[in-house]
Design a protein around this nucleic acid. Structure first.
Lengths: 147, 147
DNA sequence: TTCATTGCAAACGGTTTGCAGCAGG
DNA sequence: CCTGCTGCAAACCGTTTGCAATGAA
């Protein structure tokens, strides 16, 4: 992500344009997979000289609240963050081998929502869908690997 | 849940039949919503005289690993547990207002799996789907509440 | 100049662990 | 009896907070 791009986004959010914020956005923008807060920390530390972990948490939280990045909750109780260029509603296919994330456009949720509304009058406000597997590349390279 | 029923399940899992395990299974079996570990703890404490919170965690974990109960992940990073009678492949619609859980039979995942295989040659090994919302009853009672 | 941002250390809270004692089979 | 179960206290670990120092506008 170019500095001007991140600067523009930050200004639009009424956040000051600081090296820490730009570097974190740049870091996530260059990744195809989810990163935890401390993974982001380790990646931006060398480029910034130093940065505190709480700062990383604060910036990630701001960006997630603003909707610039997505928070991912996995079963290990750690939070992961992902900057996805795709703006529309979609989900992720996560490769268990290389952690790469692919977009999944379709999800059967429209049907489910309609079903719930029809059956019990309920309303769906959010849903968590994550598809785990092995991506095409890893399937070929490590055909025998199973985790 | 009757004592004989929980005892049978425990024996099948090669777990000793203890009052603590039975009372926790009984507690979850009598709930239509998910409970956190300390909520289970507070419910079973009076019936057992005393029980340690770590014991509650250990038993809930055993039951979840064995598939007897389901772990529910919400964004507060606490783990919740739910005993579901439905054995087949299905998902849950979780009411954010009253915490009631409804079964969702259909999930559009077959189509997604086929799509991933066709498009990139990847292979789906597992998926997580949880649908959050407001159930029919709560929609009527608290039409104005939004969280 | 001024208020948002950051670093540091310490607190927080849900969960797990180590180990000694207890109890089901 | 002999494991497996449990209680207790303390550790763990990701995350948050308080506060003083710094820096963007």
């Amino acid at each position: 992500m170019e500095p001007e791009h991140s600067a523009a986004i930050l200004k639009q959010l009424n956040l000051k344009v600081t090296p820490r914020r730009q570097e974190i956005m740049n870091c996530l923008g260059g990744e195809r997979s989810y990163l935890s807060a401390d993974e982001v920390w380790n990646r931006v530390k060398p480029k910034l000289g130093s940065i505190g972990l709480p700062t990383v948490y604060r910036i990630l939280d701001e960006l997630a609240v603003a909707g610039v990045i997505t928070r991912i909750f996995l079963s290990d109780r750690k939070q992961y963050y992902f900057l996805c260029a795709n703006q529309g509603h979609h989900h992720h296919f996560v490769c268990e081998s290389c952690r790469r994330v692919e977009d999944v456009e379709q999800c059967g949720l429209d049907g489910v929502s309609r079903d719930i509304a029809r059956r019990s009058g309920g309303r769906v406000t959010s849903h968590i869908l994550q598809i785990n597997g092995v991506c095409g590349t890893c399937c070929q390279e490590h055909a025998e690997v199973m985790l």
